[in-house]
Design a protein around this nucleic acid. Sequence first.
RNA 1: GCCGAGGUGGCGGAAUUGGCAUACGCGUCGGUCUCAAAAACCGAUGAUCGAAAGAUCAUGCGGGUUCAACUCCCGCCCUCGGCACCA
Length: 843
Amino acid sequence: MNYNREIDKKWQKVWEKTGIFDVDTNDTSKPKYYCLVMFPYPSSELHAGHARNYVIGDAVARYKMMQGYNVLTPIGWDAFGLPAENQAIKHKVHPQDWTFKNIRKIKEQLNSWGIGYDWKREIATCSPGYYKWTQWLFLKLHQKGFAYRKEALVNWCPECKTVLANEQVIAGVCERCSTPVTQKKLRQWFFKITDYAEKLLNDLELLKEWPERVKIMQQNWIGKSEGVEIKFPLVCSNLAINCFTTRVDTIFGATFLALSWDYPLISQIINDAPNRIEIEGFIEKVKNQPQSSRILDNFPKEGIFTNKFAINPVTGEKIPIWIANYILTGYGTEAIMCVPASDKRDFEFAKKYNLPITQVIQSKEQRAKAHRHIGTKKQRAEGTCLPARQGGQRIENSEEVYDGEGILINSREFNGLDSSEAKEKIADYMEKEGIGKRAVNYKLRDWLISRQRYWGAPIPIIYCEVCGEVPVSESDLPVLLPQTVEFLPTGQSPLAYIEEFIKAPCPKCGRSAKRETDTCDTFVDSSWYYLRYISPGKEEAAFVSEDVNKWLPVDQYIGGVEHAILHLMYSRFINKFLYDEGLVNFNEPFRRLFTQGMITKDGAKMSKSKGNVVAPDYIIDKYGADTMRLYILFMGPPQKDAEWQDEGLSGCWRFIQRALRLLDLLKEHKEQGPREQLNGKEKELLKKIHFTIREVTRDLEGNFQFNTAISRIMELVNQIYKNLNEGYLRKEIFQNSIETVFLLLAPFTPHISEEVYEGLGRTSSVFNRAWPKFNEEFLKESETEIAVLVNGRIKDRMMVNVNWSKEEIEQMALSLDKVKRLLQANPPKKIIYVDKRIVNIVI
RNA sequence: GCCGAGGUGGCGGAAUUGGCAUACGCGUCGGUCUCAAAAACCGAUGAUCGAAAGAUCAUGCGGGUUCAACUCCCGCCCUCGGCACCA
């Protein structure tokens, strides 16, 4: 049999006609399995790099089908988003036309690769039937106070006059025109994901079957830090500045305070400053400093003295208050206590502006040095010779700054404590004295979801002069996106120029009011799509709780690691919100996650601009879908990046042809008369068959080790050929081996597997057959090979009976010629025997 | 800077978790078939020395533990990814 494109087409038609991927979600006769691939963003046709995701998903789905699960594999389109709108601006095509053109093309590709989906469940986030429910979700969040508006700093491109998403800011410049991006304060919509910071962090522990690296990335992104918020009263004022610190043990070394340019009390503080104009100039300068330069390593620290002082609450000292460019906005209290002896940044700043430096922490090494001449030897060894204060060490350059933990000095009654102990004691002291209180901070910020863009779900809010911000009533959803708009980069949503869209009656009082013209970030669309697949056409609700509770959490989620943080965190957040609302009964949406590696070509990610794209359609025409699928799965461990090589592809092609030829050989195969006993070769093949079943199943049940699974099947095929070449093979065993090969291959190469099964006279689909089971009986052996090592080096091998004792085996090893020669007359020092593996003789 | 992943033949990559390093595939070489070529099939293939038997060296580098280390421990180097002035 020869593999060709006709075989692909034939079986794709059959699958479509018989609907093997159509799922009855009410069918409870089989256990459910929800296999989900991250839905594509339809920005162009798919290349071989994209294919990996879908090929893996399909292999898993088909494997689970054969395992007897009721498998749900849906697909849809993450169809809103910026690229579509940029196309509109550049080429004057409507985002919708462009998007649906791409969808048609991708759909065709997926079908031609034999990727099976339940197409009846197809969704597109840009269709009103879907985004109606995205808007509904917004309203739910709004109702509970989780969607709110506030002034916020956003990325702004002065050239394009538009707000940019973080992803559009490449190394500090606009991705389109390379102008440095500045920050601008605008009123924006946010989702209060920070309220879930603790849950999102803690529940990572529940995700036992997620890759560790993804969990660590999320953990870092949430960035929890525990510390103390300390109150620094201002001199001659009733104001106070709160500073968050994780290093309260260094408080005695806090010699100045630094505020961000955006610190809330700043105008009050500088109100009567003699150099107020100068300060305001500085603030303006920092505010406009492009982000690109802040990314640079040695961005110079700059600041300005406010002419005000605060009191260090533990030392009672008067310390100056500065405004500095290295204090982040939006984190902590935007004010920090500076301990130049224990922080490189504070040190650099203090050196530059001649601010005092007091050492309060000594490292072990510094301590050993300092104590060389103090106390008795014993005291030094025990560390009980408490030093006087002595100002510690003189610190000259930032290399000498010690920012680790150590022993406290110059810290009054806390001297001699070690940092971790001191942290607790000082925090206790502060809480008792009312100077400060323990606090927790997160790096995670609230999720900015509004975009001044057209191609997204309109935010369902109406602004009324009388009633203020009023949510659109649920019965008026969806707020439809108007079709005819002008696409211009003005900094406002194109919707802001459409009178008919903007004008709307206030849902509360009926007066003429204005619609919100911003649209939702596309991550909002994708944060709940996995729920929609269960009842995709439902008109009365986003989803039916009873049904999603049955089908979720998703059993296997498959996608690229680039979504490790954003999409996967947002989805978890939304799911937790719905859980708290009682709308779903599962805490986490994705039980098991698999992140596949990237396929590269010439060492780089495939992209049109680099010209290194491998076009799958061409490959399929030449070699067929199964060849491409097999190669993609065989090229390396799926979670790791892999380099595309055309030679590897032809290797898979050869293998498929070689395997298919077995079917022809079987047809010509002649029995040479009946014979009771199996010969040794036949037994060997049977053993190999069952061994392969066991190993392939193990590889798939593990972490989807398709590459090794396939190499096992290749070995089996090699073994079959060996048996054919080396002598008599009864037809029954021959046929059994072929069946096994193609059953095991079926998840990877479904087309040829079906074809072979038909060729063997079977009438029903391979995917209605059970995954093969191995029989322990065939794996049992009477003899096994053991390696004989002398001093850890392999010298010989021998066959032994598995029932032999350790002593018998050791004696046999010692009797080998090669061993005797090496031993000569000397008796071995030691013999180590590892069961059924090796004998190591030490001489 | 911090966190994570990784470094194995000419190449992609295996190695049951401490037990025969280099499975499987690619490439290369030789053979069979053929007028010839392609395809296919059979065989060889880590490096060095050797006619051979065999020996020595090999899993980024340097140490260590062990009868035995790609695997464990200590110290480095390099590549890739994430975060990055987070107090």
